[in-house]
Amino acid sequence: MINDKNSQKIADFIKNWARKHSIWVLAYGTGCGAIEIPPTMTSRYDAERLGVRGAATPRQADVLLITGYLTTKTLKRVIRVYEQMQDPKYVIGFGSCTINGGMYYDSYNTIKVLDKYLPVDVYINGCMPRPEAVLAGFAKLQQLIQEGKATGAQKYKENHEYYRGNLRKIIGNKYEMPLYNW
């Protein structure tokens, strides 16, 4: 009865409903987009009424928010942070820089397309996206979670070699992820 298809459906519905209404965000302030997070969280736009809350560490977070451009130096830190997060986890690409490089399209030390390195669930367009756009992005993520379509983490596991290969093209073959059971 527990493994019955219908009861599984009901369980998934309840879980997805809870995940949808309780989104803990790890705002990785890589770029200038981080400045749009405080107005989104505080009195004017108040993202907490939607259940969106800041998380302190990757262990507690559900959503990794890449706010803006990523330099090659921060890329491996971001990927380590992403791998420390617990399933189910989602990634939001924030700003034009994560989509196609934006104004850093010809920069020598930023990455252009975030989706090659991390499985992005939702992009928020704009340079910078206003808090309204950020809230719209969260609403889109909520919709995807409810429909069970926010499967970025699953994609990352299945295509791990692809993502890691793209990382190696930038960082070089010597790089290995450090062990962190210290």
Binding site: S22, T42, S43, R59
Partner: peptide
């Protein structure tokens, strides 16, 4: 939230958070 002039989460928000946390995986050792 009301003191900070925000709308604030619903009063049952913590139950949702608890349900979500319980349904998360924990692969940390």
């Amino acid at each position: 939230a009301r003191i900070q002039n925000r709308k604030g989460p619903p009063f049952y928000q913590n139950f949702i958070d608890a349900l979500k946390l319980a349904s998360k995986e924990s692969a940390i050792h």
